[in-house]
Amino acid sequence: MMKNYSWINKPDKFEENEETLEIKTQQNTDMWQKTHYGFSNNNAPMYLTSSSQKDFVYEVKTEFDSNYLFDQCGIMIYLDEHNWAKFSSEYENDEFQRLGGVVTKNGYSDWATQDIPATVKSIYYRITRESNDFVVEYSFDGVDFHQMRIFNLLFGNKMDEVKVGLYACSPQGKGFTATFKQPHFLSKK
């Protein structure tokens, strides 16, 4: 079992050991707040650990075989249901998927994406915390990382402990298997 992790929205089906978590997603699970679509969902399974370090680097490898529109798995920073950020790949069709992130502040989400080939079935994610600021990167090989986004949570208000970890969901589809390998904190660069 991964040490010091706990569930928010525990899934019905999952398997874990010290280095790997596998989630079978359930239909109608998602993370989104209000913007554009008008609905609020905060029911995606999240497996999170807490950190009060002002500076940290957290990394994980994801593997997935998603099949339905918006199937997603990736990495999460979570303060509460109104303030969080997720970064993942989202299934679109057999030609491409969307690599992107949603940052939610004060109950409103935004979504920024870029298209990547549908043949990609594994992505590494890295989050670097610098006080209230976060830098998110991705890699297809675990060596060459590329910046996805820089963002701030809580607009400069004091932020002590944050939750960071893994999530997967299926807003519309029947579910898929998301695998997370070796989630860990790295020494600060």
Rank of each mutant, 00 (worst) to 15 (best):
I75T: 13
K61F: 04
N152V: 05
A178Y: 00
K86T: 12
N152P: 03
Y91Q: 02
Q114L: 13
F87E: 06
V103W: 05
D144L: 14
F176A: 00
T20R: 12
R126N: 10
Y125E: 07
Y5V: 07
Y167K: 05
S6P: 02
A168Y: 04
N83Q: 03
S50V: 09
S40P: 03
F96M: 12
T128F: 10
W7M: 02
F56M: 07
R126M: 13
S131Y: 14
E22Q: 11
F96H: 12
M31T: 09
F87G: 07
S40Y: 11
T29V: 06
P117Y: 08
Y68P: 03
M31P: 06
V143W: 08
P183Y: 05
A44R: 04
W111A: 06
R98F: 13
A112D: 11
D12W: 05
G142M: 10
N157P: 03
I23K: 00
W32N: 02
S50Q: 14
M76V: 15
M2S: 03
P183F: 01
N9S: 05
E63A: 10
G156H: 01
I116H: 05
N28F: 15
L99Y: 08
D110M: 07
E19L: 10
K54T: 12
F39W: 13
T179F: 00
T177C: 00
A168M: 04
Q172T: 13
E95P: 03
R98I: 12
F39I: 14
N43E: 06
E18F: 11
Y37N: 14
A178R: 00
S139F: 13
T35H: 13
Y125L: 08
N4P: 02
K163G: 08
T20W: 02
M46C: 02
A168I: 08
A118K: 08
F70C: 05
I8A: 02
E19R: 13
I8R: 03
Q147V: 15
F176R: 00
Q97H: 13
S88Y: 06
Y78P: 07
I127R: 06
S89Y: 09
Q147P: 13
L79N: 09
D71Q: 01
F140S: 10
I123Y: 04
S139H: 10
G38W: 09
H146S: 15
Y167W: 11
A112Q: 14
K121T: 09
G101I: 06
V143G: 09
H36T: 14
K181S: 14
V57Y: 09
G101K: 04
D141Q: 06
S88R: 01
D160M: 10
D12M: 09
T25F: 00
S66P: 05
F70V: 01
G173E: 00
D141G: 07
